[in-house]
């Protein structure tokens, strides 16, 4: 395999934007997974689907409507959870079906599925313009800077919300900031893998990294590395194999997870074999 494709401008833009998205999805995803909000990304992306349909229906730039609908939906569901004791998974289901419902309704009113919609559903990272790439880089930098600034409070909130509150953290405010950041991350990342596969980028690298049994900083570093490797290798491989980049990226992440599971299994099996041998010799 020669790497002449790296000379193509559309591949370069795809790789740069893809790497930025890989980083923010992995960072946000760590907090989402640990708070048992793994499907929150999926729910937000379905809200975004409703927003995109609204954009296509009204003629407004769909990413803006997607952003507004997702953020409002996420804030609304956070408020609903707090005031009605509705459980986390049920709240996510409400968000998910509402988004999908609005989407299907507006699409039927607009006259059915169009090409634009498919690029949002399945991603189109190799079709982005330089402006898109710069926008993704700008937003990603903002998200990373905010996460770095709030890392201690977010970690405490994720570990134990009550204790975070006792130590003087305004947990209500932080929860709202958190869902807005998650919404921005999802909307920004839709261009890479599309609405339907966004959860993969949020969940897979993190659960794989957690399996290594390291501390928080090392787990984050592992997750970001795996996320970037899967996106970069996914984009390159999809070009040579003539496959959809989104599916290739996701399947590489799945392969990493399965590989880690197998490695852990073989390791445990090996250890128990050694113990068995030592006890029989004794």
């Amino acid at each position: 395999m020669n790497l002449e494709i790296l000379g193509y401008s559309f591949i370069q833009k795809g790789l740069i934007a893809g790497t930025a998205i890989a980083i923010i999805c992995s960072l946000m995803g760590m907090f989402l997974v640990l708070r048992r909000y793994s499907l929150f990304g999926d729910a937000l992306s379905h809200m975004a689907f409703g927003g995109i349909s609204l954009g296509l229906f009204t003629g407004i730039y769909p990413l803006w409507t997607a952003f507004i609908v997702s953020v409002l939906g996420a804030l609304g569901i956070t408020k609903l959870r707090k005031s009605t004791k509705i459980s986390g998974d049920a709240a996510i289901a409400v968000l998910l079906v509402s988004g999908l419902g609005i989407g299907v309704l507006l699409i039927s009113a607009t006259g059915g599925f169009k090409v634009d919609l498919f690029s949002f559903l399945f991603g189109s990272i190799l079709l982005i313009s330089t402006e898109d790439m710069l926008l993704i880089l700008g937003i990603s930098s903002g998200i990373i800077a905010t996460l770095v600034a709030l890392r201690k409070q977010l970690l405490h909130l994720t570990f134990d919300e009550e204790q975070a509150q006792v130590s003087g953290i305004n947990t209500d405010k932080l929860n709202y900031v958190f869902v807005v950041l998650a919404s921005i991350t999802v909307i920004t990342s839709m261009r890479l893998v599309g609405i339907l596969l966004i959860s993969a980028l949020i969940v897979l690298p993190n659960i794989t990294a957690i399996m290594f049994g390291k501390g928080f900083k090392k787990t984050i570093a592992l997750s970001v590395s795996m996320s970037v490797i899967s996106v970069v290798s996914g984009i390159i491989l999809s070009y040579y194999l003539d496959l959809a980049p989104s599916g290739t990226i996701v399947m590489i992440s799945v392969a990493m997870l399965v590989g880690t599971l197998l490695f852990k299994y073989v390791n445990v099996l090996g250890k128990s074999h050694v113990i068995q041998k030592l006890t029989s010799e004794a």
Partner: peptide, 9 residues
Amino acid sequence: NFPATVSEV
């Protein structure tokens, strides 16, 4: 499975 060491907590 929370990935935090004793020191980090």
